[in-house]
Design a binder for these strands. Structure first.
Lengths: 244, 244
DNA sequence: GAGTGGTCTAGACCACAAC
DNA sequence: TTGTGGTCTAGACCACTCG
């Protein structure tokens, strides 16, 4: 239904049917064309707008915006999906996996009782054999128990967890720069104290329960993160970094 | 209006009226409470969902998500607004302002004819006197002409441009790590070759016309960028960095 | 089975842009 | 003045969750 309309319009836009900076047909016209109500068309257009593909303004037809490149949610959460989408071979070398009591920050992030145990994994992630990122993930018990049972050569934890009914639906990301510690330097082959692009991510399932708290450290020059936002939908924010 | 409902619910949620991980009333109940239709309530809830405040799932009441902190769009685009929102005094020291022909990449980004001229500013931005960021902004002629006429002690270019009818409504951001060049090092007082957190940003007005292409380089430890996304609304993406 | 959010409809009025 | 998107309504049916 509205997804179909959105997909069709996205296709038309990205193939340049309306041209860069071109104008879309009126909502009414689209509704008639697809045989749906105007409300459904608006729902489809809301998707495109939040992806940064089109503008929207009272009084004027919608305009096609350039430079819109969006990934699916799973491509964003899963290093493995991301790698495949670029035609690279993802790798994951387990460096350590321990179970230990959670500290205060971890209890806070994963919404656990004080004293609860967590599972901590450290993995070197590679693209076609080249070291790219060190991934430190902290799992609550329910999830960690599954990860701990996995063979060490399983590349995609996300995929396995999904098969076990652990769903990832919402994530908060924070991006900044840190310096490499001894472990980072050893795994990535960079200088200790050298800069790394860090992405911290807390992911929750549909019920709002945290399922992972992860910290990924990328070698400079291997990745960049992109965000689109607009007056209408603003998801990005900028923070001072006093503490950690 | 739906904005009022959204604001009221946001207030109630952030003050903890429903508790962390608590459940919201049903849409029908909210509609009755506010005396509006269910559609309007849903519109309000869509705002909160895209801000990462609540979940949404068929069959279950909406759940309050923790860790949601969103800034207004102008706080994000304007260093000045951001500084004030943190209680800091923003500063801007103009290092250079030149007019010159645009190169190919600049024509592409600002959607200019080959050979068009652009205005390039380099400014050191400070928070309460402390150097934080070097800002390189490229303006198309229409905008640059205004900026070029400004006294050098004007802190907020964004504010002035808004008064001149130049509106900022959509932005694409890309975040990565770069090393400081000679100018960065001189202005920020860091080592040449040292790491900086870079945010590149292309901003357009309501008609989709680019109004600035900016590159901000932050000292490590001064800022972090945050994004919320979910299966429903995904604005963030991750890219490989081959070229520039 | 009862309650919930997801989707869709058909119609209405308004604010705004552009001619 | 005309056409556009923004907002709101009232009602409907469905898919899903949960007890």
């Amino acid at each position: 239904m509205y997804r179909k309309v959105a997909a069709d319009l996205r296709e038309a836009i990205t193939t340049g049917a309306y041209g860069e900076a071109g104008r879309l047909p009126a909502e009414g016209a689209l509704a008639e064309k697809y045989g749906v109500s105007r409300g459904t068309v608006r729902q489809a257009l809301a998707v495109l707008r939040s992806d940064g593909l089109v503008t929207s303004r009272r009084g004027t037809r919608r305009v096609v915006l350039g430079g819109a490149r969006v990934q699916s949610f799973s491509e964003l959460l899963s290093f493995t999906h991301w790698a495949y989408s670029m035609g690279e071979e993802p790798g994951g070398i387990l460096d350590s996996l321990v179970r230990r009591p959670a500290d205060a920050a971890e209890c806070e992030q994963l919404r656990l009782e004080p004293g609860a145990e967590v599972y901590v994994t450290v993995r070197l992630r590679t693209l076609s054999g080249t070291p790219v990122m060190v991934e430190r993930t902290i799992y609550p018990p329910r999830v960690g128990e599954i990860v701990a049972e996995l063979p060490t050569d399983v590349v995609s934890h996300t995929e396995v967890l999904r098969e076990h009914g652990i769903l990832f639906t919402d994530a908060d990301h924070t991006i900044d720069v840190v310096t490499a510690n001894a472990v980072d330097a050893r795994l990535l082959g960079c200088r200790r104290g050298g800069p790394l692009l860090r992405e911290r991510r807390r992911t929750t399932d549909p019920t709002g329960t945290p399922v992972e708290w992860s910290q990924d450290r990328y070698l400079p020059g291997t990745v960049a993160f992109s965000v689109h936002n607009s007056l209408a939908t603003s998801a990005l924010s900028r923070h001072a970094r006093d503490g950690d």
